[in-house]
């Protein structure tokens, strides 16, 4: 489904070169629910942006659904984002001027569906998140949890192959966070692959698989079960410095 091989991403300014990702390897299978954790500045967001085709990368290969993503044109990558990927953000990122139905409709517009098909899918997606009755409301009239559910509906409307979620519960209280999480799990059960970046170890634990990113590299905890066990290090050998080795030893949570 998703395969990243030796991806590296370097940000250059006049003065410094920052390696956001270095020799980053990851395989995600169809139907998986992957939680990505890591300290801030470790490269989580860069990974998500690259995975979501929002940013390019400097070296390496990235295959999504068998398609080589390196050097895709803007039009092509926009089409892939539209058809195969759904995004969920910490800040919900609903468009404040559009009502719920119109927000959910945005990806369908860019897909070029006709009005009837758009209407059907919007209705369906909003029903899935339980907000079909309020489709004429503006985002500002909803609570945070409801807004996030609309954002999920928007991500689902295009029936994507996988969802990328960036701290989807970060701005929500624990009750609402649980609701959103349950919704995501349902979606995953229905067959959608989900990659979720989170700070919350509680949430991470509920995913099938946990990945920790530290200093731009992956630590993979396959079927991570408990809090005390030492993680199995997948990517290791080529780490350039001892200092980083030492950091990767630290277990999240």
């Amino acid at each position: 489904m998703l395969s990243m091989k030796s991806i590296s991403k370097v940000f250059k300014t006049d003065l410094v070169e920052t390696h956001a990702l270095r020799d980053f390897n990851l395989e995600v299978k169809e139907g998986e629910f992957v939680a990505v954790t890591g300290p801030s500045g470790s490269g989580k967001t860069t990974f998500l942006n690259i995975a979501g085709l929002l940013e390019g990368f400097t070296h390496g290969d990235y295959f999504l659904d068998g398609v080589n993503i390196s050097n895709l044109s803007d039009n092509k990558s926009a089409a892939i984002r539209n058809e195969k990927i759904g995004f969920i953000f910490q800040g919900f990122n609903l468009i404040p001027d559009l009502n719920l139905a119109e927000n959910v409709e945005v990806p369908l517009r860019y897909r070029g569906f006709n009005a009837a098909e758009r209407k059907r899918r919007v209705q369906h997606a909003l029903e899935q998140v339980g907000l079909a009755a309020r489709m004429k409301h503006l985002p500002s009239q909803l609570s945070g949890g409801q807004q996030q559910r609309v954002a999920i509906a928007r991500a689902l409307a295009g029936e994507p192959r996988f969802l990328l979620a960036d701290e989807p519960t970060g701005n929500l209280d624990s009750m609402m966070a649980r609701q959103v999480m349950e919704l995501l799990e349902e979606i995953n059960k229905a067959g959608t692959t989900i990659i979720m970046v989170t700070h919350d170890p509680e949430l991470a634990r509920r995913a099938q698989r946990n990945i920790q990113i530290v200093d731009g590299q992956v630590c993979d905890f396959t079927m991570y079960q408990g809090g005390a066990e030492k993680p199995h290090l997948v990517s290791d050998t080529e780490s350039p410095s001892d200092g980083q080795q030492a950091q990767t030893e630290q277990v999240a949570g």
Binding site: F87, L94, V106, Y110
Partner: peptide, 15 residues
């Protein structure tokens, strides 16, 4: 920010 969302959702630069 709004444009960022649209881009993420699948709008191309041209759009």
């Amino acid at each position: 920010p709004e444009v960022g969302v649209r881009r993420a959702i699948g709008a191309s630069r041209a759009q």
